[in-house]
Write a protein that binds this DNA or RNA. Structure first.
Lengths: 339, 339
DNA sequence: ACGGTTTACTAAACCGGTACAGCTCCTGCC
DNA sequence: GGCAGGAGCTGTACCGGTTTAGTAAACCGT
């Protein structure tokens, strides 16, 4: 016989389907003795619930969605997402919730997927990342009424609960460290200007520069790619008065920038200090290893997952969780500027 | 009103549920005129099928599974998987099939997931990667009778269809290139010995060495991590008669090895040539950029997805697809050995 | 004009669970 | 002794689709 159903178990145990359902879901309605007997039979028959049948009864779909809008071939270059994914998985799988992952080309397609998955009842909630300035996705998700957790910054994201890291403090800690070393001309290769965290970092740098009396603090927007990171670094290093330190918004650009410096004969850290806003193997394995901001992305993923499960359980739950502020791991790419 | 059902459409159109089902699925049983009317109403009401309800009727679950057995925190370091994933997605999403991704700790847990997802009817098929020597998963998947495509090498994998790349030819092309440059002592930092492709590469190197009359061709097994890559490189370079070229089984190890060489004052490519078996941004952005084997992993993912969909449509379909042999992209990490 | 086939559709069963009203005992209490 | 209340269970409706048996009308050839 193929796949046993609760009806099979009921027949075997000589009870009704309802009783079996009660027993298997650990809810009152059957005696402890009967429950044990049913559980044993289910075990013996290797019964597993049919996820579709469960979902049909208006209950959970047992899955959550994560949709990324990026050019298909560029995903996975950044270790950040892989780490986040691992953390999400770790927590979701404990509560036997599956993760549906989809990579699409742009935000319009992403919204379309939210609509489709919601109306197909395929998922119970969403994780929203890469928060943009005036993000159109928030409105859609609120309208759909799907439990959603935003991985973003402080402040309101409509009525959606959020888990966030303090980008501002993180940037301040980097700038203060560089200023303490004696750097006065600092450049910042920022990410996509449309992202909220990019804006927060740019603002933090500007504020810190004013407060610490830096003579220069320039933020250049990029698309996070190694190509733009390299190009912008080349431009910066070709100037007459070049910066003595560059802060890169991700590890890929930082490594590319390091390559450019080496190629142009600019000594790191002698003539140029490099700091990466993301830590990963990448930052560790290059030479010299890069000073980088270490955040526990895996933990972040776990927290987001936990928050989402809480919201699914109780849609009224208001979550606004600040994760530990990342700390700077000093390696060999930063030093006192040579005058 | 929330989510419209086919019953709502049927009422609106003044026909039965069955007629609506026929119309929406493009099957005979209704007149063209009625079909159009029903389609318009469905469109207007923004109807979408409830995926659970469909799956319950013994039909497709509309999803496939990919399970990776690796320590959770190490995933995503390798661009290879991200690329593969993108390719899979691209093809699956065209056929509106979702991809369920799960990362588990070991093979036992992986098998458990196959069992669970199959019996819960959560997926219609699986993609099997990281094929091992005498892989226990194959037997389980055959027993479960789930459509599965193996991403592996040539040869039999039970009765499972497969898509594969020619690792042997790839390794031969690298060795022949290095031999042509004049290298006679070549080392190979291999991956996990339990993997089939590791064994194939080791064998290919040994055969080529004999044929080309190399004086040394050593394969050292590792766990693919940057740490072991660095450690093994250090050992090799500390020997009296050090190799003049090292082939790394992935990009992460190659970059780590490059770091070690730089640190030890061994010039690349002057005193040591480096070749990576995987190409990615990583290989491009370090300095000097690495000579690497370029395979179109994105395309590979698309092909695997297509193959799996074909097997799901027709379980008897026998697929055995060889992908284009990867080609060597020569950059600046390889040169004629200095004597 | 008649039997036979085709077309267009309806009604109901079915998939495998969950939810709930209702029934039968048994116990406790005044 | 009678009644309330609860434990333990049954039976059935229901979720939203698909599928099948059945039916009425139209069509067809001779």
């Amino acid at each position: 016989m193929s796949r046993p159903t609760i009806a099979d178990i009921a027949r075997e145990a000589g009870v009704s389907k309802g009783a079996v359902s009660f027993a298997l879901n650990g809810r009152p309605g059957v005696s402890e003795e009967t429950r044990q007997r049913i559980l044993q039979i289910a075990e013996r028959m290797k019964w597993r619930p049919h996820s579709a049948a469960r979902a049909l009864g208006g209950a959970r779909a047992g899955a959550v969605g994560l949709v990324l809008a990026r050019p298909a071939r560029t995903v996975g270059v950044e270790p950040f997402f892989a780490q986040l994914l691992s953390g999400l998985q770790a927590e979701f799988s404990v509560r036997s919730t599956a993760l549906q992952l989809l990579v699409v080309e742009d935000t319009a397609a992403e919204i379309e997927v939210y609509r489709r998955w919601a109306s197909e009842h395929r998922v119970d909630g969403f994780v929203l990342v890469d928060l943009q300035v005036r993000d159109p996705r928030i409105e859609v998700l609120e309208e759909l009424g799907m439990p959603t957790v935003v991985l973003g910054g402080p402040g309101r994201h409509g009525r959606l609960p959020s888990v966030w890291a303090d980008d501002r403090e993180a940037m301040l800690s980097i700038v203060e460290y560089l200023a303490a070393l004696g750097h006065r001309r600092i450049a910042h290769l920022a990410g996509l200007p449309a992202f909220q965290h990019t804006q927060r970092r740019i603002r933090a740098l500007r504020d810190a520069a004013r407060r610490l009396g830096l003579s220069e603090a320039l933020s250049l927007p990029t698309d996070f790619s190694d190509a733009e990171g390299a190009a912008a670094t080349r431009t910066l290093l070709a100037r007459r008065e070049r910066p003595t330190a560059i802060i890169y918004d991700n590890d890929v650009m930082a490594v590319a920038g390091l390559g450019v410096a080496t190629e142009m004969g600019v000594a790191v850290p002698g003539e140029l200090s490099i700091v990466s806003f993301d830590d990963s193997v990448l930052a560790r394995i290059v030479h010299p290893p890069l000073t980088a901001l270490s955040r526990d992305t895996f933990l972040l993923g776990e927290q987001v997952a936990r928050a989402l499960l809480a919201v699914i359980d109780d849609p009224a739950a208001a979550v606004d969780l600040k994760t530990p502020t990342p700390r700077l791991t000093v390696r060999e790419s930063t030093a006192v500027p040579r005058d």
